[in-house]
Every structure is written in C-alpha cells, then in structure tokens.
C-alpha cells in the first residue's frame, strides 16, 4: 500500500486524502520497497545464498492502485467491473467464490491466464477454508483503505481463439457506499466508476427478509445509482447489475411476502434505470450458502460471462453525460491520463 508522507493526513488509517487529491496525490509514497504480502517473521534465507546477497523486488501481489490499473488499461484489452453495496452485502464473497471456481475449473468457457493480485485472491477465501480454523466460513470485509484499488485477472477463451483479456475489479467498501450517496465529493472520488464497463450493486437477501430494515439498503442502492448518474460517472456506457446475494436465506415458498418484495424491488429497479444504461441485469446468488444448499456457481458463471463479454465503452459518450466529463475515453476514464503516469 502506498503511504502518505504528511503527518496530518488520515490516508494511512482510512484511505481519505487530506488534500482531496486521490488517486494521484503527490504526497503518496510508493510501496515498491515494502514487502506487504509477507506476514510472517520468517527471515529470508539470506544465509543460504552466500554468494548472491543482492535481491530485487517482485510485484507485491496486492491490489493494484488506480495508476497501476491504468497502465494495464493502456496496454491491453480490459474490462473494468465495480462492485458496490452496503457492509456485508456479499460483494467480497462473490469475488472469493469466483476465484474458488477458477481454482477448481475454468469459468464461463474461459481459463485463468494470469493475475497480478494472486495473494489478494487467496486471502479473500481464507476465512472459509479449513486451514483458517474458524468455526464458520466467513469473508473478510473490504477495508475502507482499499477504496480505488483493484483486483486483477487475465483470462483466455478455452479454445484459445481470441487473445487474453484482462479484468480489473474494484470493490467499493461498504462504509464508503452510503457516504457516496450522501456526499457528491465522495462519489466523485470513486475513480473506477468513470471507466466501469460493469457496475454491480448488491442487496443482502437476508436483510430483505427483515420487513423493517430492508427499505434503507434498497433505497441506498437506488440513490447510489441516481447520484452516480447525476455526476456523469455512469450512464449508457455502463452495464448495470443488481445482485440479490445470500438468496439461500430467502423463503422458498412461492407467494411469500418476502419473495414478492424482492420481485417488486427488481422490477422497480428495472423500471427506474433500464433506459439510463447500456443494459441492466438482475441476479440472485448464494456464493457461500448454508449447508446443504450448494453455491449458485451456474449463476455466478453467467455474471462473469457478461463481465468478460459485454462492454458499451466504445459506444461513444452518452448524450446524457455532462459536458465537463466529455474528455477522451477508455484509458483516461480513471481521470488519470491527463497527468503523466
């Protein structure tokens, strides 16, 4: 992780920039020398390599900064996917399941071809493994300091007919999501939104079963879309997804009031937003359901298939986008290309 050289800046603690210059704040110090993946005290076997004391750093395996992600976007065909939702709405669990699926088999007709963030992917699933020793499978929440950072995945079609494609996946921390609804400044700081081919918003299925407490998260998701449409960060160049997560928690009997609410929510979402986006999709997934329910891997494969298959980024600037955002497309959609990388 980069660190801030200013003593009064809270960046190291919560990812906020005191000068509001993220992601290109000149006060950030790069992490090249740091060794962020190594967690153990085990020393490097320097004593064993007596004749070659010189080492060189390799890439960290941690999430990519916006600058690093931009370098990939400038060099290869790539899709940007941004996940958003309230705390514990299932964003990270979906990503963990996706990587677990790749660890077992190819996904949506595509093979794993590379990743710059393998250590991060492995970490996502850790709390759901037996090695972890936890009493229940869990997924660690995305820390707010991880805002505007990206997981990286390169895939290739099984038949090898097309070149490899890169995916950059941003996960808006659950704490920041409502703040972005409340404050335009926070929303504008979500640099990945501008370049997102896919915006995937999550509603926790378990929360939807709670009649009193389900309305606020539903409202927050809709309001987030309104906010980001208003700032011009998303629009016809974006494909919007609504994911009802933890769908194993939804009642299974047809006609149930909860199911009726879920259907109504999905319909309302479509009615409100279909015309504003390249396309809109609703999903119900259970990435880590309670036994004996199996994870909805087929559904997750379909979502992933859309991520790698569809983009409206080349469709030109949306007529609905404000003039101030009408800068050149693609690589600069993180808002970085006007500055030297």
């Amino acid at each position: 992780m980069p660190r801030c050289k200013l003593k009064n800046c809270p960046y190291d603690k919560d990812g906020r920039c005191v000068e509001n210059q993220l992601p290109n704040c000149p006060n950030l110090l790069p992490d090249e020398i740091e060794n962020p993946v190594a967690q153990e005290a085990k020393p490097l076997a320097t004593e064993t390599i007596r004749t070659s004391p010189q080492y060189e750093a390799l890439y960290s395996g941690k999430k990519l900064t916006a600058v690093e992600a931009t370098q990939i976007l400038q060099s290869r065909p790539a899709q940007v996917v941004v996940l958003g939702g309230m705390v514990e709405s299932g964003k990270t669990t979906l990503l963990a399941r996706l990587f677990e699926m790749f660890q077992s088999k190819h996904v949506a007709g595509h093979r794993f071809a590379a990743s710059r963030t393998l250590a991060e992917f492995d970490k996502l699933s850790w709390h759901a493994t037996m090695e972890c020793g936890a009493p229940d499978p869990k997924t660690e929440r995305t820390d707010r300091s991880e805002n505007n950072l990206f997981l990286h995945l390169r895939i290739r079609a099984e038949d090898g007919s097309v070149p490899t494609m890169d995916l950059l996946i941003g996960d808006i921390p659950g704490e920041i999501f409502p703040e972005a609804v409340a404050e335009e400044r926070v929303c504008l700081d979500l640099c990945a939104l501008r370049r997102a081919d896919h915006l995937v918003l999550f509603l926790d299925g378990e929360v939807l079963c709670d009649a009193a407490n389900r309305h606020d998260p539903c409202g927050k998701v809709s309001d987030f879309v309104f906010r980001a449409l208003q700032t011009g960060q998303i629009g016809r160049h974006t494909i919007l997804h609504l994911v009802i997560s933890k769908c194993d928690k939804l009642p299974s009997d047809a006609g149930n009031e909860v199911l009726a609410f879920v259907e109504k929510t999905e319909k309302l979402f479509q009615t409100q937003f279909t015309n504003h986006f390249g396309s809109l999709h609703c999903w119900r997934v259970a990435a880590r359901p309670v036994h004996p329910v199996e994870p909805t891997v087929a559904e997750i494969s379909k979502i992933f298939g859309l991520w790698i298959g569809n983009s409206h980024q080349s469709a030109g600037t949306s007529a609905q986008m404000p003039q101030r955002l009408d800068f050149s497309r693609d690589f600069c959609r993180f808002g970085l290309s006007h500055k030297p990388l």
Binding site: F112, A114, H127, E131, A134
Partner: peptide, 24 residues
Amino acid sequence: MPTKPNPWTARAAAKQVKLVELLQ
C-alpha cells in the same frame, strides 16, 4: 475447535496459487 481463527499468511496460501505465481 480452535479458539481463534488463524490469520491469513502468505505461506499458508494454496499451493497451486504459489506455483502459478512463481511461474509468473
């Protein structure tokens, strides 16, 4: 049952993940 979950460490990562990284 262990009383406390073990934190993730790089050395505890899946072996195929490590091997892919070494090849990368």
